[in-house]
Design a protein around this nucleic acid. Structure first.
Lengths: 209, 209
DNA sequence: CACGTTAAGTTAACACTGTTAATTTAACAG
DNA sequence: CTGTTAAATTAACAGTGTTAACTTAACGTG
């Protein structure tokens, strides 16, 4: 079964084959509910073959998340072209939420579980860390809104503002991801909850005019 | 080893022994990282004995969470005596956050870990579910604020309002619990973040007068 | 007292899991 | 044709949640 000497391209091809199969299963069944054997079976390999390309399950998951967060950063980047900074801020929040709810397992890993492996050597200054990227884009937009004088006068700490916006959107998304199944709360429609949160954030932070 | 005929009290005693051991381990090591065998060893029983008192691991976790929700609900109950409903709402949020941040692992287990779907037969109408209790206290207060005519006119869905307040506070707390270590965000003081979130929620939801 | 019955606990076992070690297979270089 | 080596495989390990079968001790009843 093992034909030899794969070109680098073929290797990468198999790697993304694994990634795509794993992501599909992770997203639909949840990371913990998917075994390496199941991933392998889907692509017609044995489970141990995956270990020739990824150190372990955690690394595989991490690789998938990195790729998807890169995609998120790309999506957000295109939003940065919106001229009006308040509109931009709203669009960022909406796009962020869409990502969170359509990739709940990735979102859970990046923002709802402690990052064990944040080695200091990882955080080189010029890394294109997608997390950092996303936060920076929000902060940049918040600064723009601030410089346009459109926040309430007493609000001057842009980090505090950005983190509050982030927390608001994160709260709705993470609550949805972990608790939307619980039947003892009469959950409103998730879109209504997102919209109201954005309205509240805007009308609570931005100047009336 | 098996002395027979335990009184109902002794049974309950063993049950809470299991619960306490399990909670301690869950809280310090995380639910998934704790095995039934480990719980059993800590109390000097065999793993299978746990199944004489709890159907499975999920049920055990659920029971623990219920007890802790009850404790939270008790704390909140004393706040329900504050007369002014808006003040009450603010006090509820503050107390909720204090619970979350002083028991981060508890909070993680209760609000950041998925509990398998509640079966419909569990949710009898008259259940004294502690989760429901805590949410109900918030909802009750929201209704009071609504009936006092102090929400903005267009806000009429009390569940939606309650869930937005919850999401806002939960967002700040959960972000603090999982991400406060991450050095790439210039985190503002947690108390400032909580205060601003409450201000934003109030000024975004409540009528100006 | 001896009897079965039964509750409370045990060990053995099953079907999994992630992962490592040992082994096979197939293609290339000499 | 013979190594050598990459690519894949099977076997195996230590662990998981959980079920089945078995043991032990105490009780109520003849």
């Amino acid at each position: 079964m093992p034909p030899k000497v794969k070109t680098e391209q073929e290797k990468q091809q198999l790697k993304t084959l694994i990634i795509d199969a794993a992501r599909d299963l992770f997203v639909t069944k949840g990371v913990d509910a998917v075994s390496m054997r199941e991933i392998a079976k889907r692509i017609g390999y044995s489970a141990t073959s995956i270990y020739l390309h990824f150190a372990d399950k955690e690394t595989l998951l991490r690789t998938i998340c990195d790729a998807d967060f890169l995609a998120l950063a790309g999506t957000l980047r295109s939003i940065m072209q919106i001229e009006d900074p308040v509109d931009r801020m709203i669009a960022l929040g909406k796009s962020y939420a869409e990502f969170a709810l359509s990739h709940p397992n990735h979102y859970r890993m990046m923002f709802m579980t402690p990052h064990a492996s944040c080695k200091p050597e990882d955080s080189s200054l010029e890394q294109n860390n997608a997390e950092q990227d996303a936060y920076l884009q929000l902060k940049t937009t918040v600064i723009a809104v601030h410089e346009a004088g459109r926040f309430r006068k007493e609000l001057t700490d842009v980090d505090l503002i950005a983190q509050t916006i982030w927390a608001g959107m994160h709260g709705v998304c993470s609550l949805q991801i972990t608790m939307s199944q619980d039947a003892w709360v009469n959950w409103s429609d998730i879109n209504d909850r997102l919209t109201l949160m954005q309205d509240v954030l805007i009308s609570g932070l931005v100047n009336k005019d």
